[in-house]
Design a protein around this nucleic acid. Structure first.
Lengths: 301, 301
DNA sequence: TTTAGCGATGCAATTTGTGCACCACTTTTG
DNA sequence: CAAAAGTGGTGCACAAATTGCATCGCTAAA
């Protein structure tokens, strides 16, 4: 669109780091691009770039402008999707940043269900940790985030939160498998695998174990991949940990899941969120609505 | 700004109702303006105007676009104000749509206090009824609304609500003046003035009186101007009604105010609000913050 | 039926944007 | 220490987009 062209050029310069480099990327002469930038700054009333000997860099005013540009592009995309909506076209794109745990079962199921009703809607799904997820939201790179307790919460607006007790996953013939809930103290006597430190499951386990003084957490395997840990159980009889939303063991007769006793370990919080103050495109808003519905339903089961 | 020019032209056409009329208002030929509109619709991918024999009118897609335009202009203004803020300029403009009752004392006092700290900030204040106030918010014509219980609430986001019991205003030598609170039944025996039907005070009184079957509300004067009604008390010994936030009788020895008994008349709700989902300019957000503080303080007094 | 007002369009004039060559400057490189 | 390789900025001629004018076809009001 015509009215966003200056913004696109500005974005290009930001990404390239210099006007000349950007000009090569964008099929325009450096001089023309330079004049566009200068004219914009003139009309805007403020400089937005620092001129350095090796290129340009955004100044604080430029940072604000960049956020405005991103927000504006996203707004305009939403407008177009709304308009095609009322023309009966029903298209759109949803991008989700989520914790690893949701990749194998939960999100595929939900996205398939959504696309069954709205085949014109496409998706982007990326695994992101809590910090990156929030950053993606604020850069308008993702519409929706679904993560476990982000650390920093300035731009993250929690739309829905659901407590997730940690479950222990073990073989069906494991000595603890006949208990309806398992005690942390019992688990620590058997081999177990655990995620590395910057994952919510590990943080909660550490906190809980620290209360049982004298015991230290000592997984036989430490990994960042929940997928790996879940499959490892097929080879060694070791307990792994997962949030229920990441589990779907009904078809696997070899494995069972048992919740950890609530008095031992605090539950994690699965947070469904978006960029604070942002109005989502129709498709994303509807998908978020579906997630809320299914999450609150899971709670009731 | 350059990138908003198409939008300004579109707005002009909407306001004028025809391309030719708009072209006269905006120093451009009808043909050029016509081509701008057509080109925009081309690039946008949808028509936004219905072509009628006597001019043009927005179609539904155009209505959505118009809202986008308004929102965009307001966003850009906010961006500029933020940027000048970090240049240390501290300027801005706040526009308030409010109930009549707040015009004589409350808003003048608060605005003066705000401008004492921020002399660069200018204000627009307009008296609007509940429906018009909400419409102004959604058209980005006002930033903040301060009204008594708007009827329709779709676009009105209540930021702060405070209950306001109706007070009776009477001469200091009135027979009821020695009571700390007055009963509705007693008041109805004396002459009183009341606002016309579409004001919250009147609606609450009607509801209350309707419970006292057999009695009908019968003001000796009915007016839309609270100012007039308050001053009328100087000429005839009649009771008038007001919300406390609209009163400031400490300097007037002739008049006293007494709350109506709570069990007789429900209190009104003074609602401080903005357009749902909108991020206000810095100046407006700060002024709103001040209003919240003072309103919650008034509650404690 | 006439008339007045509307949006659309072809064409020439004009304004605006672009590319090229070059400048002044700073950091990196030899 | 000097040359080289970057950078953003600028004057000038040319290309492209925009505008204004005249005019068409159309519809509702007079």
């Amino acid at each position: 669109m015509r009215h966003l062209r200056d913004f696109q050029f500005i974005e290009g310069v930001i990404k390239a780091g210099s006007i000349r480099k950007a000009s090569e990327d964008m099929n325009i002469t450096a001089s023309a691009l330079n004049r566009r930038i200068n004219r914009f700054e003139d009309e805007f009333g403020f400089e937005i770039f620092e001129r350095l000997p090796r290129g340009v860099r955004l100044n604080p005013a430029g940072e604000l402008l960049l956020h405005h540009i991103r927000s504006q592009q996203s707004d305009f995309a939403r407008l177009k999707s709304q308009v095609s909506d009322l023309s009966g076209v029903r298209r759109g794109h949803v991008s989700v940043a989520c914790s690893q745990a949701l990749l194998p079962f939960f999100l595929p199921r939900e996205i398939a269900r959504y696309r069954n009703d709205h085949p014109g809607v496409t998706f982007t799904v990326n695994a992101r940790d809590r910090v990156d997820a929030e950053r993606e939201l604020s850069e308008f790179a993702s519409d929706i985030a679904l993560v476990f307790e982000p650390l920093t919460m300035v731009d993250f607006e929690v739309v829905y939160a659901i407590a997730q007790p940690i479950h222990a996953v073990m073989r069906a013939d494991h000595p603890l498998a006949d208990q309806s809930e398992v005690r942390l103290r019992d688990i620590l006597r058997f081999p177990y695998v655990a995620p590395s430190e910057n994952y919510a499951v590990r943080a909660l386990l550490e906190t809980a174990v620290r209360r049982l003084s004298g015991i230290e957490i000592a997984p036989v395997i430490e990994s960042e991949s929940f997928d790996f840990m879940r499959h490892y159980g097929a080879w060694e009889d070791a307990i792994s940990f997962q949030f229920p939303v990441g589990l779907n063991l009904v078809n696997d007769p070899q494995l069972v899941e048992r919740p950890l006793a609530k008095r031992d370990v605090a539950p994690g919080n699965l947070l469904l969120g978006q960029l604070r103050g942002r109005t989502l495109p129709v498709a994303s808003a509807r998908f978020m609505q579906q997630l809320m519905t299914v999450l609150s339903g899971d709670l009731l089961e």
